[in-house]
Write a protein that binds this DNA or RNA. Structure first.
Length: 229
DNA sequence: AAACACCCCAACCGCCTCCGC
DNA sequence: TGCGGAGGCGGTTGGGGTGTT
């Protein structure tokens, strides 16, 4: 039986009051982030440490951008989602001032629907056909760029019910990334899929690309370690 | 004006990973 | 090397706001 993260009977739940916010901000301003488990007591808050951390990360941090997502940000989220899947923290890490929660919520409430309206399956960024939807008007240079999740040779599997992502944690992390990346190297998919304009080199900065490559390298090393006898 | 439906987003929950011992 | 605690992550929930009937 897992121990609860804190003594729940003594903690507040639900929306944060202004006083609680102020206490948390004041405490972190003086002592910095970290030690979330002991923070509530030290700061005089009747909250669980996790709750404090979430409140700070998602709402109180001074560097948060808040407000509507720009078109560029939308674009980047879609591209990164095609590449990384539901790894919201990684995606948010590429969007300064945005949190994983914010990106996740925005994806679920706006971008998913937007893609579906365009006739694209938001799970795998492939076209939905079945002749149920009107033929979408794709922008010039429309290509998923990350259509391949399976390592199998690419064949048109549009609309295949079996073509749904398996749960992310059931896959090796680098499978999806490397396959997506390999797709970027592939022949143009003009005879299979429209061009989604998901070329990551367009709007992702050089630093971002470097970071992605670093992450990828680290993962490769980790997997190599694991695979070693 | 009231009832209902829908949407958005802050917050919670439980699992996973990392790290120190 | 194994264990336990702390932090981090992604999925889900629930309440409040807004639109529709």
């Amino acid at each position: 039986m897992r121990k609860p993260c804190c003594d729940k009977q003594d903690t507040n739940k639900g929306a944060w009051s202004k006083q609680e916010d102020e206490k948390l901000i004041d405490y972190i301003r003086i002592h910095g982030e970290g030690c979330w488990r002991t923070l509530p007591q030290a700061a005089g808050l009747l909250r669980c440490g996790k709750s404090c951390r979430l409140r700070w990360i998602n709402y109180l941090r001074p560097d948060l951008k808040r407000g509507n997502f720009s078109e560029d940000e939308e674009d980047l989220i879609i591209k990164l989602h095609a590449l990384l899947g539901n790894r919201w923290s990684l995606i948010a890490g590429r969007l300064p001032g945005r949190t994983d929660n914010e990106v996740k919520n925005y994806w679920n409430s706006h971008l998913r629907r937007k893609l579906m309206n365009m006739g694209i399956d938001p799970n795998n960024h492939r076209l939905i056909t079945r002749n149920l939807l009107p033929r979408p008007q794709f922008p010039h240079n429309f290509c998923t760029g990350a259509s391949g999740i399976s390592a199998e040779p690419k064949v048109p599997v549009i609309g295949d019910a079996a073509d749904i992502h398996p749960p992310l944690h059931s896959r090796r992390d680098n499978d999806q990334v490397s396959d997506a990346a390999s797709c970027l190297d592939d022949e143009p998919c003009s005879n299979q899929l429209p061009d989604l304009n998901l070329d990551l080199t367009i709007s992702v900065s050089a630093a971002t690309v470097d970071k992605l490559e670093d992450d990828e390298e680290k993962k490769q090393k980790q997997w190599k370690k694991l695979e070693e006898p």
